[in-house]
Write a protein that binds this DNA or RNA. Structure first.
Lengths: 228, 228
DNA sequence: CGCTGTCTTGAATTGGGTCAAGGGCCGTGG
DNA sequence: CCACGGCCCTTGACCCAATTCAAGACAGCG
């Protein structure tokens, strides 16, 4: 699975230290984590870990995007989170789990930091800033996942797409332009849609002033979009 | 909102102390929490807190069931978790949030312990056993919520109902009998279904040997049910 | 220029929501 | 003990959203 694996260099240490997971750690804890972190680069589509594998590490994404998903026994798979640079994942097993409860795959070329779960656990027991960071990350993920679940149950595909666009709209009114950070394929999965359904959702948003060209989305009237 | 509010008596302290959230706390932390806990009894259907309210406390359910849900702007509401006795909720805001991100309602007569969020936060910073308990609770909830989300996306209504039944089947094969702990109404919400859909799901499970009479579910062949 | 992979469009199907009516269960009161 | 009324649950009919399957458009790239 590893095509390259080593200590973090200066650039990587800086990236990691700015991460929301690490930025409030005590200097000692930060250094200990940075020293023990393994940096791994993987090509697109590699499996980072598979659900059911015994879990020895948590990860922090440095560059690229990663899919977290589970599969049904019929082979279909459902994404429940797309990780963006700076985020941690698999952190839910630092206390409790011994096996990964889901799979992770590189959606493009990624570079990530691998932190030994036991190290983090020990550190969290000794250093309250580490525990606090864990709690903050878990809370955040719990809230986001809950929101996703509720959105699925409450909103239709066009509404969810509109929500997604509005969340990353720089402005509150007037017009805006957004560039999707990844393939529509991935976006569809993260919204719980088949790719075709995403396509149709976009085209049904045309009437609300949304136009799509490749990865670039033009919104003519943000306020109007917010209504529906 | 409060119809009775006071310190925990011995019975209540015992209940709380056995809770998965509290059972591994240091004696000092446990006592401090028990001393500051407020015990509240509420009749069925009371609102415990409403989404958007400023959040000052987290809760631990002692008896009865509680719905956690959010509402869409059209007034429809979606449950995402049903709390059972012994569980904590609203714990996600101990670090981070200042307002409840969802609403909580008593599904029947409930009694619950109210813990001041700031107390818990301070305690967690000082006492690693408290932080650890928070981390464990958050991890657990994150995993369960993730599972729910994935189930929604991957499985049909009858499959989700079958899953629910199998999860609380004492045995692995042969026949089994389960008594639902609450109204079908509530079960429907927790599975993300309209009550009618739950009904239909049950009746479509008849062919798999599931028979329903009131709250009692008979499963003639657990192994057969597990297949579908 | 053709190729490969991504995206879109169309038609058929299905799962589940909604609305409206009927049935069972239980508590209350006669 | 039975009758009544309310509440929850079930059933049926209808409809809409979204998946699936299949085919075509489009882009980037050799």
């Amino acid at each position: 699975m590893l095509d390259r694996s080593n200590r973090a260099n200066n650039r990587e240490r800086n990236l990691l230290a700015k991460t929301s997971f690490m930025k409030h750690l005590s200097p000692a804890a930060l250094e200990s984590l940075l020293d023990s972190a393994q940096i791994i680069s993987l090509p697109a589509r590699s499996i980072i870990f598979r659900e059911g594998e015994s879990a020895t590490a948590i990860y922090c994404l440095l560059a690229g995007y990663a899919r977290l998903y589970r599969m049904g026994k019929d082979g279909r798979q459902a994404d429940f989170r797309i990780c963006t640079p700076g985020e941690v994942f698999a952190e839910c097993l630092v206390f409790g789990g011994t096996h990964y409860p889901y799979s992770a795959q590189a959606a493009e070329n990624v570079s990530l930091a691998r932190l030994d779960a036991k190290d983090v656990r020990d550190l969290a027991e000794r250093d309250p800033t580490v525990a606090k960071a864990m709690i903050a990350a878990l809370s955040e993920h719990l809230i986001v996942t809950t929101e996703t679940l509720v959105n699925d149950r409450l909103h239709t595909a066009p509404q969810r797409v509109a929500d997604y666009l509005l969340e990353r709209c720089p402005v509150d009114s007037g017009s805006a332009s957004i560039r999707l950070p990844f393939q529509k394929n991935l976006l569809a999965g993260m919204l719980g849609l088949a790719p075709e359904a995403l396509s149709r959702a976009f085209s049904s948003l045309k009437r609300a002033g949304v136009s799509v060209r490749g990865r670039v989305i033009q919104i003519s009237d943000v306020k109007a979009l917010r209504e529906m």
